[in-house]
Computed example of a mutant assay.
Amino acid sequence: MNQSTAKPAGYLQDAAARSATAALLGTPEGCNDQVVGTILSGWRYDLSEVSPATRTDYEAHLLDCYHCRARQRLHRTIDVVLLALFTLSFFAFLLATAIIHRAPWGQTALASLHTAHLSFAVTLQTVALGGLLFSLLLWIMVALMTPAPMLIHNTVQQRRLATGRQRL
């Protein structure tokens, strides 16, 4: 099989060839080239910052090595799931902040501290705002430290091209 014209196998093709678990976790035998496999695993299988000449060699290895391809797929799956989780968390805290801001709890005192009353709504709203900011910070960290945003962008572009070709 010529490596330059070979198409990378997708999850479904790998799962059909072996098993769904092996398609994400790799094989018990491990990588077929331990030196390259160790380098790729140290980079978390991220080839976005690698020079184009080196990238072609590593991409060829990923086409040949089922284990490394599965491990790369696992890492990208974790990255995308983290982005989705922090996005949902952000919107949940945003909704909680809006609901608490409009709720009738503003008059309920949580505790009397000598001369000031600590409002239950203000306390809940502070916690919700803290969660909102924490979710946003974690989302930004995942987006900056992983190639997941580029992966999502490339996937969307490929889907658009595929649907555009089907319409013609």
Rank of each mutant, 00 (worst) to 15 (best):
residue 1 M to V: 09
residue 136 L to Q: 04
residue 140 I to Y: 02
residue 20 A to I: 09
residue 69 R to E: 08
residue 41 S to K: 12
residue 150 M to T: 08
residue 9 A to N: 09
residue 105 W to Y: 09
residue 112 S to M: 09
residue 50 V to K: 02
residue 146 T to D: 04
residue 103 A to H: 01
residue 26 G to V: 10
residue 86 F to K: 04
residue 34 Q to V: 14
residue 11 Y to C: 07
residue 87 T to A: 09
residue 153 H to M: 14
residue 66 Y to T: 11
residue 129 L to K: 07
residue 121 A to W: 00
residue 5 T to Y: 09
residue 143 A to K: 02
residue 90 F to I: 09
residue 60 A to F: 12
residue 5 T to F: 12
residue 4 S to V: 15
residue 5 T to L: 13
residue 147 P to G: 03
residue 158 Q to T: 14
residue 57 D to A: 15
residue 138 L to G: 00
residue 88 L to E: 04
residue 89 S to W: 08
residue 136 L to T: 04
residue 142 V to N: 00
residue 23 A to N: 01
residue 166 Q to F: 14
residue 78 I to T: 05
residue 10 G to S: 12
residue 94 L to Q: 11
residue 46 D to K: 09
residue 45 Y to E: 08
residue 39 I to F: 11
residue 73 R to S: 05
residue 147 P to K: 02
residue 37 G to C: 15
residue 41 S to T: 12
residue 44 R to Y: 10
residue 18 R to W: 09
residue 24 L to Q: 00
residue 131 G to K: 00
residue 98 A to W: 11
residue 153 H to R: 15
residue 17 A to P: 03
residue 33 D to A: 15
residue 155 T to R: 14
residue 16 A to T: 00
residue 2 N to I: 13
residue 79 D to F: 00
residue 131 G to T: 03
residue 140 I to V: 07
residue 103 A to Q: 06
residue 129 L to R: 06
residue 51 S to T: 05
residue 156 V to H: 10
residue 109 A to I: 13
residue 69 R to N: 08
residue 4 S to R: 14
residue 79 D to C: 07
residue 165 R to D: 12
residue 47 L to H: 05
residue 106 G to T: 09
residue 133 L to A: 04
residue 19 S to F: 05
residue 149 P to Y: 02
residue 141 M to L: 11
residue 42 G to K: 13
residue 128 A to R: 06
residue 114 H to T: 05
residue 14 D to P: 03
residue 81 V to H: 01
residue 52 P to Y: 00
residue 140 I to M: 00
residue 52 P to N: 03
residue 28 P to M: 08
residue 60 A to C: 09
residue 8 P to T: 11
residue 3 Q to M: 14
residue 112 S to W: 01
residue 133 L to W: 03
residue 132 L to G: 02
residue 85 L to C: 03
residue 4 S to G: 09
residue 1 M to F: 03
residue 32 N to I: 15
residue 65 C to V: 12
residue 12 L to R: 06
residue 126 T to Q: 07
residue 92 A to Q: 11
residue 50 V to I: 14
residue 20 A to Q: 06
residue 130 G to Y: 06
residue 119 S to V: 04
residue 53 A to E: 07
residue 70 A to T: 04
residue 61 H to F: 14
residue 25 L to M: 11
residue 26 G to P: 00
residue 131 G to W: 04
residue 104 P to R: 07
residue 79 D to P: 02
residue 130 G to A: 10
residue 87 T to G: 03
residue 112 S to C: 05
residue 92 A to F: 12
residue 134 F to W: 02
residue 58 Y to F: 15
residue 93 F to K: 07
residue 132 L to Q: 01
residue 95 L to N: 11
residue 95 L to C: 12
residue 2 N to G: 07
residue 81 V to A: 05
residue 4 S to K: 14
residue 98 A to R: 13
residue 135 S to A: 07
residue 48 S to W: 10
residue 24 L to T: 02
residue 141 M to R: 04
residue 51 S to N: 07
residue 59 E to W: 09
residue 61 H to M: 13
residue 162 A to P: 11
residue 41 S to D: 11
residue 66 Y to Q: 12
residue 47 L to C: 08
residue 97 T to W: 13
residue 154 N to S: 14
residue 147 P to W: 02
residue 15 A to M: 08
residue 34 Q to H: 12
residue 164 G to V: 10
residue 70 A to N: 03
residue 167 R to D: 13
